[in-house]
Design a protein around this nucleic acid. Structure first.
Lengths: 270, 270
DNA sequence: AATAACACTTGCATGTTATGGAATTGGAGG
DNA sequence: CCTCCAATTCCATAACATGCAAGTGTTATT
């Protein structure tokens, strides 16, 4: 929304995309006037956009309430995206193994739009566990998977993200000082993994390691998350190499050859 | 595409949606000229649409090949749709039970855009099994789940679908004669289930039963699918009541009260 | 190495068509 | 019955999406 706009681009289409993005799990049902207010758009414009979107199944209307929701066409397109993400296929069996070994929730995270997003998950069998919503986005500066992804971005991108706005406090121990974060990210690059205590959620610990493609670029982060109560010092020390190893196995499946394991292979600058 | 267009609708937006739908699992990577040819659109128009879509993450561009693919924003929106489909949540445990009892692939299907679409699946543990792509659409006139969904549509919709074009042959035994299909659909309504032999795929058998919402309207079909070799007469006779029962349990979870089990409750006309 | 073929990008003039505003209809609540 | 708010419809206007044509770049062909 506050992005710089490319030169050749279509404003009317952008408004329609904004309308789609006005919907969320928290606000699944929206009426024309609501959207109109929320996006500060003329009502007739919103109306016409919704009529067009509905005609192609991007939204559906509930005849009773007259409100709209996101439609099945998005389910369909979303699953095409899901299917074509190669990393998910390679990652899944490795994630299963990791989940079995740790009995904790395992996630695969990627960067989307300057945030991190979970694209695959296996939930812990414990009653108390992290429940993940696939597709939900969280900031990069908070939590182990975010830090792994952020740490391996080109330096200018890191600075952009750290300085673009005040870093949002997500949990009790979110690091919001850019300088401290820069140090932390350096450590993440050197160690090849990241741990976070309650940075994003109260009572949650995460351990994350990078996943690289054939070129060595970090394209995802694999993470183990669970409640502080089960993440004893011993468990954490056991989990860290498991996470690193899992990341490495997926990377190799993607064609990355990890010849010199002690060498730091920085993310390929774009 | 050949739909009648509502009065108040935005052509430029429609073109952009058409561009999105030009992508599929078979054609995941498309260049500007390809799309331009495929949709008979001016190249600069396609270019500008893609720039705008890319800017919001609806498509991504591969810098090497210069081609575009569908982007993570669609994954995200798709998962919102997935989460908010109540029927999936109620259906899942019932589907698990059904899969366990039959050891065959179980699917939940809904109607989308005059076709049937699988929105949830549990695959058979057997090596030889139906492999389902969630989100893929198939015609309603072919296969047990399609017939269950079609049979419970209002009569005018049925006629529309059966007569709008020549019914496509999908498998060795697809029924393409509208009159024969109408008889078949009547039977499906009376019996409360449907069986299909190789109507959609060579060697595949399906059994499907309806799922109703609180109002009695059929909103989904639950199906069991597998290879002819395992669908002996005895197995089919065993599976049919299991499918019906599964559909009934889900319907009840949705608030449908099945007071008179022998009464036919037709789909509520819109 | 030269040339052809093709894909993507850009600029600009044009008129199509998306837009805002205002008026109308419809439904919910008091 | 009246009020309020939401959705729908109409219409005049000019904003801006569009097509065309030229430009750049890359790959294939001779």
């Amino acid at each position: 929304m506050v992005e710089q706009k490319p030169q050749y681009y279509i404003q009317s289409l952008q408004s329609a995309l904004d309308v789609l993005e006005a919907f969320s799990l928290k606000e699944k049902n929206l009426g024309i006037s609501e959207i109109s207010r929320k996006l500060d758009m003329n009502k007739s414009r919103v109306h016409r956009i919704l009529v067009t979107l509905e005609n192609s199944g991007y939204v559906t209307r509930n005849d009773e309430t007259q409100k709209y929701r996101l439609g099945l066409k998005l389910f369909q397109l979303g699953h095409i995206v899901e299917e074509q993400m190669e990393v998910r296929h390679f990652a899944f069996p490795v994630m299963q193994k990791l989940a079995l070994e740790t009995q904790e929730t395992v996630n695969l995270n990627v960067i989307h739009d300057g945030k991190r997003m979970s694209v695959e998950k296996i939930e812990s069998p414990h009653e108390i566990r992290q429940a993940v919503e696939l597709g939900k986005t969280l900031p990069l500066h908070s939590g182990a998977p975010g830090k792994v992804l952020l740490a391996n971005l080109p330096e200018n991108r890191i600075n952009e993200i750290l300085h673009q706005a005040k870093l949002k406090v997500m949990g009790p121990r979110t690091i919001t000082d850019p300088d401290q974060l820069i140090k932390e990210l350096k450590k993440v690059r050197e160690l090849g993994y990241s741990v976070s205590f309650e940075e994003t959620y109260l009572g949650a610990v995460s351990i994350a390691a990078p996943v690289r493609d054939f070129s060595g670029k970090v394209i995802a982060a694999i993470s183990i998350t669970g409640p502080v109560s089960r993440f004893s010092k011993e468990n954490i020390e056991r989990f860290i190499p498991l996470a690193i190893q899992a990341g490495r196995v997926i990377s190799q499946a993607l064609g990355y050859s990890d010849r010199n394991e002690n060498n730091i292979t920085p993310g390929k600058p774009e």
